[in-house]
Design a protein around this nucleic acid. Structure first.
Lengths: 155, 155
DNA sequence: CCTGTTTGACTATTTTTGACTATTATATCA
DNA sequence: TGATATAATAGTCAAAAATAGTCAAACAGG
């Protein structure tokens, strides 16, 4: 056992501690563990995926970083269920309903709700019928993901 | 762990404060940050572009300077100019710059800014290369339109 | 022999630097 | 005074450095 991946996973969780977010340097971490850099990507992909309750952001280039955000369990569950509901395609009515739900839960302001609506239907309008729902799904998922990221930041 | 560029950007914004213009000496600033002079040009180009709502003027030679002016356009014109700038297609970098400008003008909150960003790049991600920019344009226009609608309603 | 791990070569992105160029005010000289 | 040199600025552009991502092949434990 004691797969390298497990050590790295634990190490990262140690770093996280009680915090809901941290930033790491992929290369430093790889060097620390004396492994390939891409090993870190593997760990992120397999142990810190969305369905495990984590979000990962990164930036390349000088002073680049990898940022990990842990969703608290209640949000993680809600987030999961929203993502599942949306899937690969979602019609406008459903999309709006889901957005309303976020509003009811006070996860977004009224203004943000309207902003989300306008984004979600705009993209679709531009497309041929077949893709509309797929596109809406992408935009909506992204918006919701953003909302959840914010949620963690507040604490 | 902010990149040098980020520090310089912040430093300049601090200097600006509530004012709409300041003058700096490129070389002094570079020296202050212990970096190449051209680093300053990089920051100006990437963080203080017209799309982000800034004008940069300068003069070389003895007693030369770099002058930064923060634009604060009246809303009516602004809406038009944004729509025109976006046109039928817009790349991600420009889209982000424009959104950032809305933020500078305090037309959107930081949270709304991030929400808009996420919507604008999400839709595009799903599409074949050719359409990305066109789609981004639709979503961005819609979001901006929404922001301006809100603005009107407020009065 | 599978399946999940690990590695490495290659790619992509962003920042930082440096050498060289351009412009302008001021000092100097004829 | 007018012309010219000098010093003090700023600009450009491409290379180098500093990150991170991808993907497929090799590997290892059950």
């Amino acid at each position: 056992m004691a797969a390298l991946s497990d050590s790295i996973e634990n190490f990262i969780k140690q770093l996280l501690g009680e915090d809901t977010r941290i930033e790491i340097k992929r290369n430093e971490l790889a060097q620390y563990f004396g492994c390939a850099n891409s090993q870190i990507n593997y760990v992120l992909a397999t142990r810190f995926s969305v369905d495990r309750g984590y979000l990962v952001e990164s930036r390349r280039g000088g002073s680049g970083y990898v940022r990990l955000i842990r969703l608290s369990t209640p949000s993680a569950d809600l987030y999961e269920s929203l993502m599942e509901r949306i899937g690969d395609a979602v019609d406008e009515e459903t999309a709006f309903a889901l957005i309303s739900r976020l509003r009811e839960l006070k996860l977004v302001t009224a203004r943000e709700e309207r902003l989300m609506r306008s984004c979600v239907c705009a993209g679709a309008a531009a497309l041929p019928l077949g893709c509309k729902d797929a596109l809406r799904a992408c935009v909506l998922k992204s918006a919701i993901t953003q909302v959840f990221k914010e949620l963690q930041e507040e604490n």
